[in-house]
Amino acid sequence: MVKEAVSFYFKEKRPEEFGSFLYDLPEIKSANEKYTQTNIPGRVGSLVTSNGSVQNIEIKCTLSIVNKRFLSTLRNLKEWLLGHGKLSFTETPDSYYEVLWVDHGDIARQVRKYGQFTVTFICIPYEFEITGKESYTLPSSGILNNSFQESMPVYKITGEGMCTLSVNGNEMTANVGQNLTIDTRRMSAYRTDGTVMNTSVTGDYDKLHLLHGSNEISVSSGFQLEVIPYWGWKA
């Protein structure tokens, strides 16, 4: 039995649809957490402290063109490899990366010189598990089990008036007018129509993350809560 070659999907399309193929395994550069070094008189070695931020990751893919219609293939590839979207590999179909930007350089020049070209996907430093996009409706209080690493969920609250959302004892208060979305990754609150409501919430977004294991979640009586966990692994 011949094993299928590794390929990938970007914006739900594969390179084979554009007359190209993945020449080699992707190169995934791990995320680096930013830190500060402080020299203290009399201390051997610097004091290293994290500032809590993590750089985006780079995923490099080397592609070759096999389509004889060279110019039209280049045009279609350039159009496909623009903007942002989801990136997944055929050998790990249950997970994906969120692409923020694509750098493909001068494809025509690379192909003429080397026979291949390199595409660099700039991604959020997290590998998302596909089931993490599902929405979980919770009662006024309950447990949500996270089998993965710490995740940055989205909370959707419906109701009217002042509401308190509690996650593992950490509270965020919100003035809800029919609906409110609390997005912990983007550190933003907004309505379903896109209206930004950051001034309507009080609390720390970071403390609403879902930790590995059991997470106790509650919302004020009279309100309904949905959670989109976006769980997975730190890249």
Rank of each mutant, 00 (worst) to 15 (best):
T118F: 00
S166K: 13
E79K: 13
W80H: 04
D204A: 03
T158A: 12
T199Q: 06
I130W: 04
E12K: 13
Y9S: 06
D204S: 08
K11M: 00
F223Q: 10
Y155I: 07
Y9F: 12
V154R: 13
Y126H: 10
S151W: 08
I182A: 10
P15A: 01
F128E: 08
I130V: 15
G115K: 05
Y23S: 03
F148E: 09
G232Q: 10
T62V: 12
N56F: 07
F89P: 02
E216T: 15
H212R: 13
A5T: 02
D106M: 03
D204K: 06
A31R: 02
S140L: 08
I57F: 00
W231E: 11
Y190V: 04
V219S: 06
S147R: 12
V154C: 11
V99A: 04
S53H: 08
E27C: 02
K113D: 07
K113Q: 11
T131C: 09
Y230F: 15
L77N: 02
I157Y: 08
K207M: 08
T38A: 11
S95T: 15
S200E: 04
K34T: 13
H104A: 00
D106Y: 02
Y155M: 11
S46A: 15
N175R: 12
V111Q: 04
Q116E: 03
L74K: 05
Q37E: 15
I107F: 00
E216S: 15
K207W: 01
N145Q: 10
D193T: 05
Q224A: 14
G45D: 10
M197Q: 10
L25D: 04
G115Q: 04
L211M: 14
Y96Q: 04
S166R: 12
F8A: 01
V227Q: 07
Q224I: 08
H209T: 11
F117Q: 00
K68E: 05
S135A: 15
L47K: 14
T181R: 10
V66H: 02
I28A: 06
F21M: 02
I130F: 09
L74Q: 05
C123E: 01
S135E: 14
K234F: 13
A31G: 07
N198A: 09
L22K: 01
V54I: 15
S221W: 03
S20L: 00
R109C: 00
H212N: 14
Q37F: 08
E98C: 06
G115W: 02
S200F: 08
D24F: 03
K68I: 10
E129W: 12
E79H: 07
A108R: 04
Y190Q: 04
L138K: 07
W233H: 14
M162Q: 14
V167I: 14
V219W: 04
G142V: 06
D193C: 03
F70E: 01
F121R: 01
S88C: 09
G115M: 03
T90W: 03
P153M: 13
P229Y: 11
R69I: 01
P41C: 06
V219F: 06
L144W: 06
G222C: 11
Q149Y: 09
K68N: 05
T38H: 09
Y205C: 05
V227K: 03
T131L: 10
T181I: 13
T36S: 11
V48I: 15
I57H: 00
S46N: 14
G213W: 06
R43Q: 15
P153N: 12
